[in-house]
Simulated scan of single mutants.
Amino acid sequence: MTNVLNAQEAFTALQKGKTVLCRYAGDGTLHADKDFSTLDQMPATVFALPNYEFCIQVETIELAGIQFTKPLSIDEVEQEQDVFLIQPHAVILQYKYSENIDELVTGIRSGFAQRDFDNAKLQYEALCSVVGGSIFEASLEIAEQPKKRRTSKKQNDVIEVKQQSNIAANDDNSLDDIIGPVSAQSPASNDVEKKTSLELSPEICDGSQPLISFDAVAAAAVSRAQKIDNETSQKNSDRKLVEEDEEKYQEKLATLKKRVDESLTPTEVNAVVKYTNSWSAEQRQPLLKYMHKRLEVLQQNKTAEQPSLMVRIQNAPDLTTLDALEIDISSLDPIIQPEMMRYVKTRRLELEKSATVAAISDEDLP
């Protein structure tokens, strides 16, 4: 069941904390929208524009796989509102709400009352399903209302004057009994509604001030909605700039990583850092880790290309070189030092023998 509101009724409902939905109603040239949308999907000036319709969204719940509107609460029901009370014998009783009907008040407080017949049927079927009972076709019956006490014509006139006075003072069209379509409401829309109702001029809700015209209320709503639109646009713009900056950063990072891969010496690897002067420490961290890995690879390659200490000892060209290598042995693990010293001793004997042979040869020359 969908009851359509005009802009003034919708704005009043918004002030009362209701969740308001909106759709374009068409203007004869453009077709009307079929579905209602949240307020954040609509123009900021929607309350002041023609050809728009509003409704109130009612929260839904699901039980035993059946979805229906949340049962009517005693806080939101109003006098003479249609109330559909669920009976266990597959009968839905339709009342005009009155606080003097005890069984109706009890049923509402117990959560067995709905705003319309269709959702009352769905709730009845869900209750039967959850306890494993049989589901029968629910029927609608008009409940017998308690007879009203007769009043004199003079009393009726006084009551009518009071009612008209209350309507003029509050400008409240009993919007609590207006039911919107069953659909989800986004948190962003709720924020818009709450801010709009809370941040309007306090004179609107101050009972000591004269009632402000709807045009003034609509203008305030439009102003606030435009401000929210501007803030949203600014956030979207900032987000777009951040995304563009991130894209440029990733492109440059990929380029520098490629240059690191192509570097053949530690000096070339370290030179890449100069291209990151404008980066933050957080942005530079991935590149530094990548450079560190490349330096480890280069060090391993250098170690693999360099002959082992044993080979250098065996190939030492002279005693001076051998003495220098003997010093290097002292930095090795103590377990391997004796073996390396054995190679040093062998090579020293070879070099000394070679030097002796050379000296003898020099003496034999004429």
Rank of each mutant, 00 (worst) to 15 (best):
P146M: 06
G26E: 07
A90M: 00
T321W: 07
M340T: 01
T320F: 12
A126P: 03
D323M: 07
S165P: 09
Y275L: 08
L256R: 14
D318I: 09
G26S: 06
I228K: 00
P187R: 05
F214N: 01
A324Q: 07
V46Y: 00
D116L: 03
V217G: 00
S280Y: 09
G207L: 15
I179N: 07
K257E: 11
P202I: 14
P266K: 07
K147N: 08
R239W: 05
A48V: 04
C205V: 13
L140H: 00
I228D: 07
L21R: 12
T19D: 14
D27P: 02
S208H: 06
A188T: 11
K148S: 12
V91F: 01
P210Y: 09
S110D: 15
T29S: 04
K274A: 12
M310A: 15
R259C: 08
K153D: 09
V105P: 00
N156M: 12
D238W: 10
Q8H: 06
V91T: 10
L241Q: 13
H89I: 05
G26A: 07
L264I: 12
L14R: 08
D40A: 11
P187S: 07
S233T: 06
A359I: 10
T232L: 04
E137T: 04
F68Q: 05
V58D: 10
R109L: 05
D172I: 04
A13G: 08
L140K: 02
D177T: 14
S197E: 02
L365S: 14
A32G: 15
P146I: 05
T45K: 00
E251P: 01
Q209T: 12
A219P: 00
S213T: 02
